[in-house]
Measured scan of single mutants.
Amino acid sequence: KSIMKVYCQICRKGDNEELLLLCDGCDKGCHTYCHRPKITTIPDGDWFCPACIAKA
């Protein structure tokens, strides 16, 4: 079994998992407080990182 360690693409830390959003496009993580602008609430439904939005 392989366990994927998810970490924030900005701060490179994997702590505060409850505030770590996973992109529905690329599965990369980003803390709500590292994202600019900050994300104050966990979004309902799908969330896409800035890189995936730029590709769309």
Rank of each mutant, 00 (worst) to 15 (best):
R36E: 14
K13D: 11
D46P: 14
H31K: 02
K28C: 06
I53D: 12
F48S: 14
K28E: 14
C52K: 02
C49M: 00
A51T: 13
P37D: 05
A54R: 04
K1G: 03
H31M: 01
G45L: 02
D27C: 05
C52M: 02
C52A: 01
I10H: 15
A54G: 09
D46R: 09
L22K: 15
V6I: 09
Q9V: 06
F48C: 14
G25R: 08
K38E: 05
K38H: 06
E17R: 15
I10T: 12
K13R: 05
W47Q: 05
L22P: 07
K13C: 03
I53V: 12
I42F: 12
C8D: 00
K38I: 09
Q9G: 11
P37N: 06
C11Q: 00
I39S: 08
I53G: 11
D46C: 10
N16W: 05
A56L: 02
L19Q: 15
C52T: 02
T40P: 14
K28W: 13
H31T: 02
Y7G: 07
D24G: 15
G45T: 15
D27V: 04
L22A: 14
C34E: 02
I10M: 11
K13W: 04
Y33N: 04
W47I: 08
S2E: 14
T41H: 11
T41I: 10
V6A: 07
H35Q: 08
K38M: 08
I42V: 11
V6N: 07
L22R: 15
C26V: 01
L19W: 11
R12V: 09
I39Q: 10
C49R: 00
S2D: 14
R12Y: 05
C26Q: 01
K55F: 02
S2W: 02
C34G: 02
G25C: 05
P37G: 06
G45A: 06
C52N: 02
K28H: 14
A51K: 06
L19A: 12
Y7A: 08
M4S: 06
C34P: 01
A54M: 03
K28Q: 15
L22C: 13
E17Y: 02
R36Q: 08
H31A: 01
M4I: 09
F48I: 15
G14N: 03
G45N: 12
C26F: 00
L20A: 04
I42A: 14
K13A: 11
D15T: 04
W47C: 03
Y7C: 07
H31D: 02
K5P: 05
G29S: 12
L22Y: 05
G45D: 09
K1A: 02
L21S: 05
P37K: 09
E18H: 14
E17T: 09
N16E: 13
Q9A: 08
D44I: 12
I39F: 06
W47Y: 06
F48T: 13
I53P: 15
W47R: 07
M4W: 03
T40Y: 07
I53N: 04
T32S: 14
T32N: 07
D27Q: 06
C26K: 01
G25T: 08
K38Y: 06
G25V: 08
I53M: 13
P43E: 11
A54D: 10
K5C: 07
C49W: 00
S2P: 04
G14E: 09
D46W: 01
A51L: 11
E18D: 10
G14S: 14
V6Q: 11
K5I: 03
I10Q: 12
H31W: 00
S2R: 09
W47F: 02
I10A: 07
T32W: 06
K5H: 04
L19N: 14
M4V: 06
P43R: 09
H35I: 12
L20C: 12
I42T: 13
G29M: 03
C52L: 00
C11P: 01
C8N: 00
L19R: 09
M4G: 03
T41S: 08
